[in-house]
Amino acid sequence: MKVQQLSVFLENRSGRLAEVARLLGDAGVNIRALSLADTADFGILRLIVNDVERAVEVLRRAGQTVSLTDVVAVEVPDRPGGLAEILEPLQEQEVNVEYLYAFVEKSSDRAVVVLRFDDVQAALEVLKQAGITPLAAEKVYTL
C-alpha cells in the first residue's frame, strides 16, 4: 500500500529543475505526479515516476542528491468535500500529515492525493478503519 516517492535536492539557481526533467526524459522515465517545495535558498522536488529504480540510477549517476520516501496515495471523489473525507479520520486519530499534493486522473472522475506521514503504519491503520483503501503502488506508477 506504500508508494515510493523520489525527492531531489535543488539548489536555487536557474536551470536546475530543467536539468532533472531532462535527465529523466532522456532515460525514458515518465513523471506521474510531482510537487516542488521551495525556500529562499533551495527547493525539494518530489516525484512519483513510472520506473523508480531507473530514475534513481540515472539521477545518482548524474551526481544528483536523491532520496526515497514511502508515501501513501489515496483516491478521492473529484467533488467538494472529497479531500476532507480523507483527512478527517486522520485528524481524529491524531495522525500528522507532513505534506500532500494531488492530481486529477485523466479518464475518471477521481483525484489522487499523495500523502506523506511521519508514521506511515499508523496512517495506513487509520485509513483502513475508515474504510479507505490506498492505491497499490503499481497502479500509481502506471496511472
Binding site: S7, A37, F42, I44, T65, S67, E98, Y99
Partner: peptide
Amino acid sequence: VSPEVFSDEVKKM
C-alpha cells in the same frame, strides 16, 4: 549537504 542527510521534508533541512 551529503546525500545521507538529505530529506524530502523542508522542515528537516
